[in-house]
Amino acid sequence: MATPRIREHYVESLFILLLAVIFAAAVFTARGWPWKTALFPMLIGVAGCIIAAALALWTGVKGGEAPTPGDTGGAADIFLDVNLRSGEALVRTAVIALWILGIIAGTWLLGQMIALPLFVFLYLKLGSGESWPISVGLTVCIIAFLYGVFDQVIHASWYEGELWRALGIEMF
C-alpha cells in the first residue's frame, strides 16, 4: 500500500493551475454581460482565481500537500486502496473504462433497451467468464427491470438508436 506519489504530485499542481485558468477564463467571458448576469460569475470567478493561484503557489513552495500514503485525503472521502502502479491494475482500469464508454456507444447505436441488456450479458459471459445460466438469468432480470419499472411504470422516453433511425425502423 505504501506507494510514493511523486509524479502525480506535479499533475495535481497542474490541475490546480488549470482551475485558476478556468476561473480566469470565466471572469473574462463574463466581462461583456449586463451586470446582473455577470455579478455571480465575477464574484465566484475572482474568489476562485485568487484561492487557486495562492494554493498553486503554496504547493510549489511547500513541495505540495499531496496526501501521504494511507491518507484518506479528507475525513469525508473514501480511501482509494488500489495500487495502480502495477501494470495489471492500469489494464483493468482501462478495460472497465472501455465497458462504460461502450454502454454509451451501444445506446447511441441501438437504444438502451437493447444496449444495456447486451452489455450485462457480454460483461458476464465474455468479460468475467460466468456460466451460461447466470449470464442469461441476470440479463433477463435486467430486461424485466428496465421494461417493468422504467417503461411500464415510469414511462421513461427511450433513446431510439441511430441505427434504427437510419433504417427507418420504429423500435421503441
Binding site: L19, F23, I44, I51, L55, G74, D77
Partner: peptide, 15 residues
C-alpha cells in the same frame, strides 16, 4: 469540514 484540506475544499466548491 468535509476534508482535511479546507483550502482545497473551498476551491472545488467555488469550481
Amino acid at each position: 469540514l468535509s476534508g482535511n484540506a479546507p483550502a482545497k475544499g473551498i476551491l472545488v466548491g467555488l469550481f
